[in-house]
Design a protein around this nucleic acid. Sequence first.
DNA 1: ATTTTTTTCTCGACAGTCGAGAAATTAACT
DNA 2: AGTTAATTTCTCGACTGTCGAGAAAAAAAT
Lengths: 407, 407
Amino acid sequence: MLTKSSTELVRQRNSVLVLSVLRRHGALAHTEISDFTGLSSATISAITADLERAQIIEKSEQQAASGRGRPRVLLRQRRDCGYLIVIVISSDAVQYSLVDYAGKLIDRFSEERSHDPSGAARFVAGVQAGLLRILDRSRISQEKVLLISISSKGLVASDEPVLLWSPIFGSDQIDFESALRPEWQAKVILDNETLLVAAALGAREEIAKGADFRSLAALSLGHSIGLGIVRRGNQTGQEISAANFGHMLHMAGGGLCRCGTRGCIEAYAGFYAILRTAFEVPLDTIPAKFVPVAELDKIAARARQGHRTSAFAFRQAGLALGNGLSRMLSLTERMPIAITGPGTRYYDLLRQGIEEGLGQSHVVRMEGMPEIRVVPDEPILVFEGHLNRALSVIDQDIVISGGQGGE
Amino acid sequence: MLTKSSTELVRQRNSVLVLSVLRRHGALAHTEISDFTGLSSATISAITADLERAQIIEKSEQQAASGRGRPRVLLRQRRDCGYLIVIVISSDAVQYSLVDYAGKLIDRFSEERSHDPSGAARFVAGVQAGLLRILDRSRISQEKVLLISISSKGLVASDEPVLLWSPIFGSDQIDFESALRPEWQAKVILDNETLLVAAALGAREEIAKGADFRSLAALSLGHSIGLGIVRRGNQTGQEISAANFGHMLHMAGGGLCRCGTRGCIEAYAGFYAILRTAFEVPLDTIPAKFVPVAELDKIAARARQGHRTSAFAFRQAGLALGNGLSRMLSLTERMPIAITGPGTRYYDLLRQGIEEGLGQSHVVRMEGMPEIRVVPDEPILVFEGHLNRALSVIDQDIVISGGQGGE
DNA sequence: ATTTTTTTCTCGACAGTCGAGAAATTAACT
DNA sequence: AGTTAATTTCTCGACTGTCGAGAAAAAAAT
């Protein structure tokens, strides 16, 4: 549905544009902002004056004059304009990070997650406590927290911050919005972890390639399997789509998955599945809840030394991944695939299976093998994705609300 | 990538908005346009005056005054403002339609496609001839044709009007842009046929449900299998994604498909595949190029009378479709599925298999069976999709170019 | 001290939207 | 017939926004 436009909307959009340029390039002078945005100098004056009045940006102290002429006045975000809390939920820990408006990490700690199945209610209480703790450690007032950005593996609702299904809590849903709402007035967003990885890689790609960038998929290999897809939208930045890839059907009536269904990709390519195949345990055995990486390393070592069954386990995993990716590519355009997560250390063993699995489909035979790259440092990408996404949401909100009520 | 906004852009967008409202509701008075768009009366005056001057819309003749007060002056598109040619390519014919700017069908004819494999080059020549013919029959000058909107089954490039793969020409690519470029200055767009069906259904849904509409998939059953997905985008109307669903891998190393790959969905659910299974022909037999519907009707009749192998063929087909759909749903959000195409007449036989196939996956077990509806009149939907899409593209272009050079 | 160079700020012109009220036009009422 | 009420369209001034040009500021070079 189209909607009406007004001159005020123009100002809003251009203000967001200025903030985003500032975000991408750091502190900038008047002239540089004008160059990057394509807006005229007069407009930059007007917009920056507004933003300064609203205490969103500030003039930085005079730096050593670089050349002759009137020295530049650099503009930068006010760090104390607002804060962001990032919560990364993984299977064994929850990491809390406090970030200022300029994107600088102020504080961070992790809390081990006990593996008791006490469920969602207690976990939510833990998150509430964690939030208060990070706030307390840094002595920042609660109102200054503009956004809480959460990520988890699993399936996330598209419009609300609700975790629909996760490998940790199963289908015990968690609604973070309502869990935090009375105390926190900050906006709450929730994203699939691998989606953030894809978003981060997409942003990097876009900086490198510019308009040539079209789309990209990120595949995360670990205890569970995740997939994120980033596509460059028509105009509105880049449109991002999450995925429940790990539990896509690989083979009807196949091996039993942790989720209780048979034949999921994860039941072939998850760590526990590789273990199961390597030890020739029947495929309908209820899988182990958690597999130490050391265990898998041993199997990998054996496989590399030529041990048949071990190599076969990785090959089967690759095949499931390859088939799944080929199915994904049947529904989207051709795109490069980035593989991340702890499973990348076994890529040498998985590769042949992945390629074979891909090769069995029409799209790949027609368009050729997609580019596959390995990007091991997943946690960095997750955090980067959080920042990209969260800070641009904050920019948006801050401009719409016209600063902190000051006008 | 964000881009700068200006006041002129505001006018453009609002002009497009006015045109789109006119499109949806037919001839409207000043006041009504104001109501529908949310723009003030003064703005409507300014915009409509511009559009009238540019000869895009016109005041209609006074109608019988309906109530008291100053009588309304209805505004409507000028039919002769420009024309659209719609080309629907199907396996046995090519249909040409000439439509005026108001969306009214002026002329239409079909040309049988000879089944000779003389290939793409000759086909392109046929299209060129067809275009000239429809132009000639209606005595409309070539410059007045603003857009040529083409649809076909198969895989379409996302940014150019290039047919990458089709059941008819295989991977003999056809670039319609360059094929028509010297003679025709009209814009050329190409869409997957089932995508247009999905777009049309999505538009209907959006009218019925308003903002509640989120997304929808259309599945077309016939000699080949097609899938289109429509999602409501963030702001920019609805974003649409094409799919190569028919040749998604159903089962590795499975039955031989027309495309030369093994195990495609089509190799189980296409008409020829159902025939093959019903007659217990080995699955690696090179499939028939074309299957008369009457032939399939016979099998269906036998199946309905309880004939085992025939019923099995439909069940297998349903299973492949259900598995495929479940895989699609693993990569997207939950959405209703509309089934169209000639294959809908066998839906009673396919249904059980489809539901079983869907039920084998994690998403469906978790979120429940998606809503499935049967919408048999596919050709109408294809044409409706063409019109929706093409006319809104024309509106866009016409506003940007500021009418036909008149200012 | 003056000139050159570079950056920032300011002013008037222009484009767009909006609200209010004037103008137009018909039906209904006395 | 004359007047009033209702309804629609048009117009005017106010406001917001962007832009180009040139003034003002400030440091280096001459």
